[in-house]
């Protein structure tokens, strides 16, 4: 019961937030002028007419970072529940060593990626 009460208040905050933004946008609509011209609606590109399409081609240079991120993020999910119990009676040093082995694997993976030059932006 307590559990749901806590999160229902959090939900109410979200509702308040949505209301705040809606009221702000609605009152903004009443307060501001609306005088669109084709020039105003142009995409901004240093003051000259935009060149080429809207979405430019860009290199996604960091997809390997994305892989690394996913690996470590999963690790973090394991880490938090473990963090609350690892020093409880009956766990202690063994539990700690087990987690070190796990983190050690990740650290070696990071070192490997570093050595391979994955962590270079260019």
């Amino acid at each position: 019961m307590d559990y749901f009460h806590g999160y229902s208040v959090v939900g109410l905050v979200a509702v308040v937030g949505v209301l705040f933004v809606s009221v702000a946008f609605a009152s903004g609509r009443l307060l501001r002028p609306v005088v669109p011209t084709p020039e105003k609606m142009l995409t901004y590109e240093c003051g000259v007419d935009p060149v080429g399409g809207d979405w430019a081609h860009t290199q996604i240079r960091y997809y390997v970072y994305a892989f690394l991120y996913v690996i470590f993020a999963v690790d973090a999910i394991f880490l938090f529940p473990w963090a609350t119990v690892f020093d409880a009676p009956g766990f202690g040093a063994t539990t700690l060593v087990e987690m070190f082995v796990f983190i050690g694997f990740l650290a070696v993976g990071l070192l490997y990626a570093w050595k391979k030059g994955v962590l270079e932006w260019t």
Binding site: R29, R32, V34, K40, M41, L42, Y44
Partner: peptide, 17 residues
């Protein structure tokens, strides 16, 4: 609050707003 709100013609309107 009283400045004009401009959504560029090419923009993805809903997401932009």
């Amino acid at each position: 609050a009283q400045k004009e709100d401009i959504v560029p013609a090419d923009a993805d309107r809903r997401v932009f707003q």
